[in-house]
Design a protein around this nucleic acid. Structure first.
Lengths: 138, 138
DNA sequence: CTGAATCCGGATCGATACTG
DNA sequence: CAGTATCGATCCGGATTCAG
């Protein structure tokens, strides 16, 4: 056990993945809802049952392909149910499961945080860009 | 087990982006912390001040390039500060700003949700994969 | 209406080598 | 130690077309 230098770390650990950062499970969540469309679909479904077209209209910009993939993945993870009505023309209803609904609370926390710090973030970014005109960050 | 669903018909709109889904600001947040490494870096920095190498060791798997890009972006958004000590060899300290710290609460919510539903998600996925062996979702 | 299949451009990420 | 630069693989996502 080589002593080495003792790092100064006395900060109230709001988050700590057990002892090691070990990922916790944060990555798991973000891998699921961190994509471009999942949360938007979840937000819309938080309002109630939606059909495929309704979802597509409610989430402007999403392509059929992406909507299909998104709802399929959400279904796979048990966050929503997919109900096919054997009618013609076909009708498919999507609805959040209880777990999916519990996720909306998380999304709300995200939205709240965003609303609260949006201005500060924008200012910080503007300040940084002014100080580093030729930064290749973005 | 009480039979019959207790008809949660009227679900309280936990999240709703005003009238239109209009994105709220959820996408903004996810565009920032939804990437592969940001939250892991934030989690590590939640423990205290860290140097570049310390961060890299604390987040196994991250490359120098990705760590550099990640901390630069976080700095740009005002989530952390970067302090260069004019010593030799060079030493650079990274530390969360108050805003960055406030983000850790959000991350904790994510971790909690993940821990709480991880099993259910895994079961749902397993069940789905068994029912759809040839689904091209993943 | 709902969705599958295909093609393709861009973004992301990792590995490696080099610098101060 | 703390980066920067370059390259290539991979993935994500959009547009289009076809099908039940």
């Amino acid at each position: 056990m080589s002593a080495g230098h003792t790092a100064v770390t006395t900060t109230p650990p709001v988050v700590s993945c057990g002892e090691a950062h070990e990922d916790c499970g944060i990555r798991e969540v973000l891998d699921r809802i961190g994509d471009k469309w999942s949360v938007l679909v979840v937000v819309e479904l938080a309002q109630g049952v939606r059909r495929f077209r309704e979802l597509q209209r409610a989430v402007p910009g999403i392509s059929q392909r992406m909507l299909t993939l998104t709802v399929r993945r959400l279904e796979r993870d048990g966050l929503l149910t997919r109900t096919v009505h054997p009618t013609v023309p076909p009708q498919v209803d999507y609805e959040l499961t209880p777990i999916g609904h519990s996720l909306t609370h998380l999304v709300k926390a995200l939205a709240d945080w965003s609303a609260q710090h949006r201005d500060a973030l924008a200012r910080a970014r503007h300040h940084f860009d002014a100080a580093h005109p030729d930064a290749d960050i973005r």
